[in-house]
C-alpha cells in the first residue's frame, strides 16, 4: 500500500515529469496562456496516460519486444482520438483553443516515457496509479504557469476579471509578454529553480 502511495506522490513532487525530468515542455509553453485550456489539457493527459498505462500493462507480456513502440503508439493514438472527439462534442471552445495540441499528446514525451519505463514492467493497478500521478504532476505545473500568465497577462482567471478596474485607472497595465511563450519558459525556469533550491538532492554535481 505504501508502495502505491509512493508511486502516486513522487511524480507530484520530487520526480515531477515537467519540473524535474523536463519532459512535455512544448505543450506546457503552448497551452498555458489561459487557465481553462491548461486544466483541460492537464486532465486529458492524465486520462490518456492512466488508460494507456493500464492497457499496455495488461498487454505487456504478449507484446513482442521489437514492435513494442508501435503497439504503444497505437494505444495512445486511439485514446487521443477518443479524447479529442469527446472534447469536440462537449467542450468545443476549449478544443478550438487547444487546437493541435490535443492531437500532439501522442508525441508527448511523458507518455512514451511512462509506458516504456513503468507500464512495461509493472502490473495494471500500479500502472494506473503511476499514470494518474504523472498526469497530475504535469497538470499541476500547467496550472501554476497558466495561473501566473493569465493573471498578469490578461488580468483574468477562467475569463473572469480579477484585477479591479480601479487599478487599471491608476495606471496598471497587463503585461503583454506574459501571453507570449518566452515568458512561459521563464516562469517554468523559475519553478524549476525554486524546486531545486528547496530540494538540494535534485541538483546535479
Amino acid at each position: 500500500m505504501s508502495n502505491l502511495k509512493e508511486t502516486f506522490l513522487t511524480p507530484l513532487g520530487l520526480n515531477n515529469p515537467v519540473a524535474v525530468q523536463v519532459l512535455g515542455i512544448c505543450s506546457a509553453l503552448a497551452v498555458t496562456a489561459q487557465l481553462e485550456p491548461a486544466i483541460v489539457m492537464g486532465l486529458s493527459v492524465t486520462i490518456i496516460l492512466a488508460l494507456a498505462n493500464v492497457v499496455i500493462s495488461l498487454l505487456r507480456n504478449t507484446i513482442p519486444n521489437r514492435i513494442r513502440i508501435i503497439v504503444q503508439l497505437v494505444v495512445v493514438a486511439t485514446l487521443v482520438t477518443i479524447v479529442s472527439e469527446v472534447l469536440k462534442a462537449f467542450a468545443y471552445d476549449v478544443s478550438v483553443a487547444l487546437s493541435v495540441y490535443v492531437g500532439l499528446i501522442i508525441t508527448n514525451c511523458i507518455l512514451m516515457g511512462r509506458l516504456e519505463a513503468f507500464a512495461m514492467a509493472n502490473g495494471p493497478v500500479d500502472s494506473l496509479v503511476d499514470g494518474i500521478g504523472n498526469g497530475l504532476g504535469y497538470a499541476i505545473i500547467l496550472v501554476i504557469v497558466a495561473f501566473i500568465r493569465e493573471l498578469f497577462g490578461a488580468g483574468t482567471l477562467f475569463g473572469f476579471q480579477i484585477i479591479p478596474d480601479c487599478l487599471y485607472e491608476a495606471g496598471y497595465m497587463n503585461c503583454g509578454l506574459m501571453l507570449m511563450p518566452p515568458m512561459a519558459l521563464i516562469i517554468l525556469g523559475c519553478i524549476i529553480w525554486a524546486m531545486r533550491a528547496k530540494n538540494p538532492e535534485l541538483q546535479e554535481k
Binding site: M173, C175, G176, L177, M180
Partner: peptide, 10 residues
C-alpha cells in the same frame, strides 16, 4: 526589450 514586448502601447 522587456518593456517593448510587455507594454507596447507605452
Amino acid at each position: 526589450a522587456f518593456l517593448f514586448f510587455a507594454y507596447p502601447t507605452k
